[in-house]
Simulated scan of single mutants.
Amino acid sequence: MLVPFAEISNRFTDFEHTAWRLESRKQYATDLESPRFAAFRETGRLPDQPGHHAWVANVLRQLDQGKTFGRVRILDEPLTDNQRFLLASSLESPEDIRVLTRSKAKGLELPDEDVWIFDSKTIARLVFDDQDRTLGVEITENAAEVLRVCQIRDAARHFAVPAREFAAALPSEA
């Protein structure tokens, strides 16, 4: 059953030890429509963000409680504009964000899906429309599906490189 993303927002504070996401889309409408993305496209740099964004503040609170927050982003070669924006944002994030190229992810047979897994027991699969807008989330605790996503997480994390390391290896744009 599809539920609005807002209905799972409590999971980002209520999880016990681990929140992890696989991101595989080339772009996200929420980014493309944001003033921050527009500024990034214009200047090639992220604009200053006064104070802590609510997401970052929550991640920091969870990390202070000994929990882990992480994700693996699958990026194309060359990166899309949105992926360059996400990579730049990754460098500011307190999350453990790692990167895999799409070719490497395909070689590992990782799926093209966006999914959160909480505490290795609850999955929230994001569903998108053709314009890259989030339609909602499918929640499951089905043991076989949880095991599948745990295996995906383990493979993705093992072969991904930290976002900072990936960014440093990119050729500079003159």
Rank of each mutant, 00 (worst) to 15 (best):
L170N: 00
D154H: 07
D76L: 13
E33D: 13
P94K: 06
L147G: 09
E138Q: 14
S24G: 12
V72Q: 06
P111N: 09
L86G: 08
V72T: 06
T101M: 04
A156M: 04
A54L: 12
D114A: 09
I97L: 11
Q65L: 15
D96A: 07
R71K: 14
E7K: 14
P171V: 01
G51I: 04
E16L: 00
L170H: 02
H52Y: 12
R36C: 09
S9C: 08
N142Q: 11
R98Q: 11
F85G: 03
F128T: 07
A156Y: 01
V161N: 02
S93M: 06
Y28L: 04
N82S: 13
F12S: 05
K121H: 12
A167W: 06
E95Q: 03
S103Q: 15
P78L: 00
E92S: 13
A167Y: 07
A29R: 14
P4R: 07
P35K: 01
A57R: 13
P50L: 02
T18K: 15
F12K: 06
A88K: 03
Q131P: 03
A169N: 15
E141D: 14
I152H: 10
A19I: 07
G107N: 10
A57D: 13
R164C: 11
A19Q: 08
R102L: 10
L170I: 00
D129Q: 06
Q151E: 15
S172I: 10
R25D: 11
D119Y: 04
A155T: 15
A156Q: 03
R41A: 07
L91V: 03
Q62N: 12
G44M: 02
L46W: 07
I117V: 08
D64G: 14
R41K: 12
R102V: 03
R45I: 01
P171Y: 06
P162N: 01
D119F: 04
G70W: 08
D31N: 15
T30A: 14
V3Q: 13
N10K: 13
V137M: 05
